[in-house]
């Protein structure tokens, strides 16, 4: 279980996270939602240990994460960030193989090769195995990076806006894959996502952030309601519930026309 207690983060004079205390339920998909500049990505980067908190403590399984050696941490928590400036010429298979780096440190064993095969099969990327990633479409590229993260075989997966710039089909493919990682393999997935409908339909748990603090959090059914989302985004919402899930309409909600 990942938990934060009284975490603060500031860049210079700008306070980005303000006294955040929260626990992420294990074995579930948790979405971090909220307007731009709410501190979602910063929160994720703190958990990934790519940034250090100004104050406060983060714990993984009861242990302070700062005390865990970075090599061991990479076997427990894998992070997928947006990597637009990634310009290495590697094939999909080679990229996925680097997910094994925390274990192999460069020498792949039979177990490593099996993990690579499993990750590629899990996302049905067999046909792209030998393609260079700089020649793939944005969606395929993101799938390849996800496969690398999966091959890292960690209990925790952190993803920063994994759906950015993807078409609808690849966005759905990625979210379904995350759902399966959680349901079939019991992994804990935490992601920052902007599309409220993906968050509502594919997560178990939602943490809504606003101005550096947790606005509300809880199971999806609890957080996804008109009042909470209106406060969060300063937009009117109309939530349509069906057996298949939710559709949050913020384009033309029939409830009000205040904005116009």
């Amino acid at each position: 279980m990942i938990s934060l207690s009284h975490v603060y983060k500031a860049y210079g004079n700008q306070q980005v996270l303000n006294d955040v205390s929260i626990e992420f339920p294990p074995g579930q998909v948790t979405s971090l939602i909220g307007p731009n500049g709410a501190g979602k990505t910063t929160l994720l980067m703190l958990i990934a240990r790519l940034q250090a908190p100004t104050r406060g403590e983060l714990k993984l399984g009861g242990r302070s994460i700062a005390s865990i050696p970075i090599r061991d941490y990479a076997k427990q928590v894998a992070t997928l960030r947006q990597a637009p400036e990634f310009n290495l010429r590697l094939t999909v298979e080679e990229l996925v193989a680097f997910g094994r780096f925390p274990y192999s440190r460069g020498n792949l064993t039979a177990a490593d090769h099996q993990a690579i095969d499993e990750a590629i099969t899990f996302l049905s990327l067999q046909a792209l195995r030998l393609s260079y990633i700089d020649e793939l479409s944005g969606g395929q590229r993101q799938m390849a990076f996800l496969a690398m993260t999966i091959a890292q075989q960690t209990d925790y997966l952190l993803l920063d806006e994994p759906l950015n710039n993807l078409d609808m089909k690849h966005a759905v493919l990625i979210m379904r894959a995350l759902r399966r990682l959680c349901d079939e393999q019991g992994r804990t997935v935490i992601l920052v996502v902007h599309d409220i409908n993906f968050a509502a339909n594919y997560s178990d748990h939602i943490v809504a952030m606003k101005r550096g603090a947790v606005h509300c959090h809880g199971p999806v059914a609890q957080v996804v309601n008109e009042a909470c989302l209106r406060d969060l985004f300063d937009l009117d919402f109309e939530i349509l519930r069906s057996e298949q899930g939710f559709v949050c309409n913020y384009f033309n909600p029939s409830t009000s026309r205040e904005l116009i």
Partner: peptide, 19 residues
Amino acid sequence: AQRFTVLAMGEGMASSLGL
């Protein structure tokens, strides 16, 4: 060799791979 390739993935990715 492999470490240098991981370095080339950038500081963030290298750190999340435990390097």
